[in-house]
């Protein structure tokens, strides 16, 4: 237990880094995911291709491979960024593919007749998205996007494999140094907390955007 109480500072710093990675990765994924989703439905064919190739590629690439390529590969072509930036960028790039897919399937889950109805009463493209499609689609998007958030939070642990001092890294370091397995329980509890907090926020958001029929 001493290993934990004596090194609360290390653990706290680890939690902070994990949270920073998660938030940065998630925000990046959200922004890039929205841009990609717009690309995928745009009338410009090359952008649609870029969108679908991106999603197909980054959804299927193991996060660890991406991390290693960023951290150890980029310096070989003369691009050096800090470990933290590389990790956050990898999380954002792979998360964006999942966000994009959630948005697309959310929009596709809306009954076809809704879009037809919106158009037939004379709403423009933007209006029918704004007042008919998105309010309904958002509801279907919340859960998968929350899952992406949790996925990014858990995925940020992989950054420890390339040497970013986040929660998992601190845990195994303290465990190696002080032979204190209890650090694993503490770290596990913290991850649970992060995931549950995400799920709770998601539930709240889902109720907010819910439509009472």
């Amino acid at each position: 237990m001493n290993a934990v109480t004596d090194h609360l500072g290390d653990i706290f710093a680890g939690v902070l880094t994990t949270l920073e990675l998660t938030v940065l990765g998630f925000v990046g994924a959200l922004v890039l995911g929205i841009v990609l989703a717009v690309c995928r439905v745009s009338p410009v064919a090359p952008l649609r291709v870029v969108g679908s190739v991106y999603v197909e590629f980054f959804r299927n690439i193991p996060l660890l491979a991406l991390l290693i390529l960023f951290v150890f590969g980029l310096p070989d072509i003369g691009l050096t960024y800090s470990l933290f930036v590389c990790a956050a960028a990898s999380l954002a790039l792979s998360g964006a593919a999942f966000v994009c897919e959630s948005m697309r399937s959310g929009i596709n889950s809306i009954a076809f007749g809704q879009a037809e109805a919106a158009r037939s009463i004379g709403l423009t493209f933007v209006q029918s998205l704004r007042f008919v499609i998105l309010p309904q689609a958002l509801r279907a998007m919340v859960q998968p996007i929350v899952n992406t958030f949790i996925g990014i939070a858990l995925g940020s642990s992989l950054a420890s494999a390339v040497g970013v001092a986040e929660l998992t890294y601190q845990t195994q370091y303290l465990n190696l140094k002080y032979a204190a397995a209890v650090t694993f329980l503490v770290a596990g509890a913290i991850y649970l907390l992060i995931a549950f907090a995400g799920a709770m926020a998601g539930g709240w958001l889902e109720r907010r955007v819910a439509i009472r029929r």
Binding site: L154, S157, L158, F184, Y191
Partner: peptide
Amino acid sequence: RSLPLLLLIYAFLLALPR
């Protein structure tokens, strides 16, 4: 569902053998 796989693997690799 809420635990990172890597943490579990480290537990099996570093902690449980003890």
